[in-house]
Design a protein around this nucleic acid. Sequence first.
DNA 1: GCGACAG
DNA 2: ATCTTGTCGC
Length: 228
Amino acid sequence: MATITGIPAGWPADETAARAVQDALRDRVVLDETGPPPGAGPVTGIDVAYDDERDVVAAAAVVLDPATLDVVEEATAVGRVAFPYVPGLLAFREIPAVLGALEALRTDPGLVVCDGYGVAHPRRFGLASHLGVLTGLPTMGVAKNPFLFAEGELGPERGSTAPLLDGTEEVGRAVRTRARVKPVYVSVGHRVSLDNACAHALSLTPAYRQPETTRRADRLCRDALAAL
DNA sequence: GCGACAG
DNA sequence: ATCTTGTCGC
């Protein structure tokens, strides 16, 4: 059964307020911890599906065993859409429902893998970082597009990487998870090193371009939305 | 001002 | 994200 989630009190109502929240919370991101390496603890995938017509959102959290990638526990939450989609402000749209799904878990989520950016964000505070600060959990982001940042050339083989650069600063890394297939874009969210985040991205992709965490959560939240 | 723009 | 059929390939 999906948990019903409300929109948190004080949730920003417009873009100006949302950017102010990002500016107020960005300093709380912890970047000096290495986090759990692959295999050291559970990994949890998060994803959200929308029906803007009906103003409903469904979020899913799926906990996987780090060695076998088998599902340990899953939870869903549904609610009303909390914010419109605005590039750079995705977290305000997704986080309320995601928090509901995470809170419904009784297992330790371990490392949380998000769909989108962590610090590879215009204000260094993408969805993964925001979720990390609010929950205290180690988080990382895996996006399908680089957009904002320059991407170096990377080899065609699985495991090759190239820095995502904002000027001279490496804010993330393009990671080839399948040979000759477009890479994914990994960035640190909270309490994880970029090296560890990239290692997780690879350990979570034994068969497809996207991490198993993301694939499992994506399917679950779609099903939860369709079941409404 | 115009276009680009995670999901 | 979501709207959507068939189709090429392993």
